[in-house]
């Protein structure tokens, strides 16, 4: 047995030093980005921006059901938005970096937060409860799937690099070509389900992060998130389904 006895001093152990000044940045922006709530706010705002884009994208996709002329015409119109103030495709080139910024900000914040979150529980429970981490996992891994899909999607239908047809200015034909392959469909369907799950929890989470939730509103918010996620997923999935069923050819 060891009973440690300390040599007595005037006040026992050394007096506590005054607390160290708060570490980290002192500016409002620095503090904001450094805090978990700040990063989540960045994720919420960038996520909502991407969601708006996705809704517009999904609505545009439905043009495919009205034939190649309408679809290709729509694609052409996108390049003329803002005319005559904006030059041809300027609108798209303004949107692209903004979207890229949203994707990067969303991804960086997500990666940093995930790293924190994983570090916050270094030892796992021996008795696992799957439901606890369901939402977190769908967000985290769903996000990774979406990031990978994004690369594929751009190579497929923007640059046409991996598209079986890949002819610029003919999106309708490219879409039909892509969805005529098994892998094209599989990748797309998996990704769209991931989009649905991601939006479902993400929209609700964004509302919470931005402080929009309340006890009375939470139910409505959850329903809204579910509906938006479902409509978005169904809308996107209707295109490959249309191709597969021959509705679109």
């Amino acid at each position: 047995m060891a009973l440690a006895t300390r040599t007595p001093g005037r006040s026992g152990p050394a007096r506590t030093a005054p607390p160290a000044p708060p570490r980290g940045p002192r500016t409002a922006v620095g503090r904001f980005w450094r805090s978990t709530i700040g990063k989540k706010t960045v994720m919420a705002v960038s996520g909502l921006a991407m969601l708006l884009y996705l809704v517009a994208h999904m609505v545009g996709n439905l043009k495919v059901f009205f034939g190649p002329e309408e679809m290709n015409g729509y694609a052409h119109w996108l390049r003329t938005i803002g005319d005559p103030v904006l030059h041809h495709e300027w609108f798209l080139w303004i949107m692209r970096p903004l979207l890229l910024l949203a994707v990067v900000a969303h991804g960086v914040a997500a990666a940093q937060l995930s790293r924190r979150d994983l570090a916050a529980r270094p030892v796992k429970y021996a008795h696992r409860k799957p439901r606890a981490s369901y939402a977190t996992h769908t967000m985290r891994w769903g996000g990774v799937i979406l990031a990978l899909f994004l690369v594929w999607h751009i190579l497929d239908l923007t640059t046409g690099t991996v598209n079986p047809r890949g002819e610029a200015g003919h999106p309708y034909e490219n879409i039909v070509a892509s969805f005529s392959t098994w892998y094209g469909n599989t990748i797309y369907i998996v990704a769209m389900v991931a989009v649905g799950l991601h939006v479902r929890h993400g929209l609700w989470g964004a509302a919470q992060t931005l402080g929009a939730g309340s006890r009375t509103r939470d139910r409505a918010l959850k329903v809204t998130a579910d509906v938006v996620a479902l409509v978005l997923t169904l809308g996107f999935l209707s295109v490959p389904v249309g191709v597969m069923t021959g509705l679109v050819e």
Binding site: A2, L3, A4, T5, R6, P8, G9, R10, S11, G12, P13
Partner: peptide, 15 residues
Amino acid sequence: VARDLVTGRIDTYFA
């Protein structure tokens, strides 16, 4: 005289 219940250390504190 007080005992730190975590480390078992016995310290004296003066005041």
